[in-house]
């Protein structure tokens, strides 16, 4: 099958979308799709603009709406909304892709920072507030459900959800294709040879299957921790040693760069093939975010 041609430049590449590709769109597509700038450190990818961001103004507006709505019914519903100026934690990129590097491995092993950068005290406050919500009576949860539905109506959320859903599906398939790329598979083979020297007895075939049982078992539990201190879980020294060696091998044998290039290419092709749907969804998402911004501005003014 002939693939759509893509012109790449060092900064931004604009793909003109062809109306001839439109099959079942509800309205004419007259804008263009912009490829994001390549940046392996943040694992920036072409479908990122269509993915749900970790700092999501729509969720923040809905949280504010729900809190007021619950308060109107006399229910104290605690929430720690993500501020619009919040930054993502260092282990994540803006759309929630987990990053892995020598620096991160030396700090977190195969674990990660919190998704939103918060102080320990703020993280603890969030856990405590949301833990209290779980113990509310069922009648309060029914009110929450209605307030949640009303908040979605406020932002007209239903209109723009298709972007996130489609982008997740496309990204999932692109990732699988990237892992099957010849260059990536060859690099994975070299990675095994490199990391074998670190002494992992159950080394998997590919880095995406890390950590294996021998490393994962170094931590106490991998399911629902009861720890609500807000502090990071101590990372076993042996896990850090192996994670750093792993990250170093991914770099030295060219695995990280091969995977990134293959995933970028696969996502660019997916973006080109579904550009009309994605650009239409993106406009709906942008409209939804504008409504959320307006609500938060109005809400802040009312609170003064």
């Amino acid at each position: 099958m002939k693939r759509p041609s893509i012109r790449l430049s060092s900064v931004l590449v604009v793909i003109g979308t062809s109306l001839s590709l439109v099959a079942c769109t509800e309205e004419p597509v007259d804008d263009s799709v912009v490829l994001t700038e390549k940046d392996r450190a943040s694992w920036s990818l072409p479908l990122d603009p269509y993915q749900r961001p970790l700092v999501d103004v729509v969720a923040s507006a809905q949280d504010a709406f729900i809190q007021d709505c619950m308060g109107d019914s006399g229910i104290l519903w605690k929430v720690a909304p993500t501020e619009r100026e919040a930054t993502v934690g260092e282990s994540w990129n803006p759309v929630g892709r987990k990053l892995f590097s020598i620096e991160l491995a030396s700090e977190y092993g195969y674990g990660n920072s919190s998704e939103i950068a918060r102080s320990v005290a703020a993280q603890r406050a969030m856990y405590e507030a949301e833990s209290a919500n779980r113990s509310l009576p069922e009648s309060a949860h029914a009110v929450f459900d209605q307030c949640l539905a009303d908040s979605r109506e406020m932002t007209d959320e239903a209109a723009g959800r298709g972007s996130y859903e489609l982008a997740e599906q496309l990204a999932g398939v692109a990732y699988g294709d990237a892992k099957a790329d010849d260059d990536v598979e060859a690099a994975a083979s070299r990675w095994r040879g490199c990391l074998r020297e670190a002494g992992v007895p159950d080394l998997p075939r590919s880095p995406d299957q890390m950590p294996p049982d021998s490393i994962a078992g170094l931590r106490g539990s991998n399911v629902d921790g009861a720890d609500a201190s807000g502090e990071d879980e101590p990372v076993p020294a042996e896990e850090i040693r192996l994670a750093v060696a792993d990250a170093a091998c991914r770099e030295s044998v060219g695995y990280a760069s091969a995977l990134y290039d293959a995933e970028w290419q696969a996502q660019a092709e997916a973006l080109a093939a579904r550009a009309d749907d994605l650009s239409r969804y993106k406009r709906q998402i942008d409209d939804e975010r504008a409504r959320a911004e307006a609500y938060l501005t109005e809400h802040a003014a009312d609170a003064r």
Partner: peptide
């Protein structure tokens, strides 16, 4: 969930790889 938080399921362990997301309710 009892908050307005999404749930994410990941293809790989430790929250890596492709994900699928569900909003509350």
């Amino acid at each position: 969930g009892t908050t307005n938080r999404v749930v994410k399921w990941f293809d790989d362990a430790n929250y890596q790889g492709p994900r699928k997301t569900a909003e509350p309710q």
